[in-house]
Design a protein around this nucleic acid. Structure first.
Lengths: 133, 133
DNA sequence: TTTAATTAAGACTATTATGGTCTTAATTAA
DNA sequence: TTAATTAAGACCATAATAGTCTTAATTAAA
């Protein structure tokens, strides 16, 4: 029941970029050093964020990453989802056959509600909220 | 970001016991068969629940397990916590040194709030809520 | 046109956590 | 005393996470 390290790193690097000069491009290895995140691993994280339209990325010399939107328009949910995929909370939600043999699937409708409100909570907070404290 | 299988099994077995005749003792292997949970693994789960004062357990011939409280007095939070331990959400909450080198620890105060409201959500639902649908 | 510097993609490996088994001890009823 | 149960925890297998590495694509500039 934990956010993965990749998710935590993603939050950190997004907060850093969001707190700097707008439109400046940051190179991966620069971000790696500043945020203390292993370079290659950070590569995968930044790619996920770029694929989801949260970061802009540019290849080649003078390439790098920057935000595509204002920090006030980026929620924690988007960031976590970009690197970890959909939030599921339990196995039954993944595979509807899983609970077939188990006693009571009211459980899973309750867990669904809990998951939904967890997601709502993650959507409440934006990068800006974090940057401004 | 998922409840473990042990947590899911715990909910299932608790719902089953809670839906049966009050005060009846159930043997582990009986519960194992009915709920489709591997016998030894269930042993550990039932022990956790008993240690936390959610289940009563009795050893020896005619031993078994039963609820210690009414299903309306047992929350999902207690059950999950009994088998999975405290809910942490991210590494920084576990080890306050972890984020020392990272850019911004407002992140972790926000994650703390999110964790707290997740716990509140888990406390909202009781076994009775699930049993009655 | 070539080269150097960057990101993209994904195969691969190492480490850690989860899921599950097994054995021995303690407890109780018969 | 014995059989049937739970308690505890060592142990093992599998899966997920964390991290590395290599090759390709892209771009700016020499």
């Amino acid at each position: 029941m934990k956010i993965t390290r990749a998710g935590d790193y993603a939050l950190n690097v997004m907060v850093y970029i969001g707190s700097q000069e707008k439109n400046k491009l940051f190179m991966r290895n620069e971000l790696s050093e500043i945020c203390g995140i292993p370079d290659s691993f950070l590569g995968k994280i930044l790619q996920s964020l770029a694929r989801e339209g949260i970061l802009y990325s540019e290849r080649g010399k003078k390439g790098g990453f920057k935000l595509l939107r204002d920090p006030s328009e980026i929620t924690l949910y988007e960031i976590i989802k970009a690197v970890e995929g959909d939030i599921k909370i339990n196995d039954c939600l993944v595979d509807s056959n899983f609970c077939a043999g188990l006693s009571n699937c009211n459980i899973h409708s309750v867990l669904n509600k809990i998951r939904d409100s967890f997601i709502e909570e993650l959507k409440k907070y934006t990068l800006e909220n974090i940057i401004k404290g």
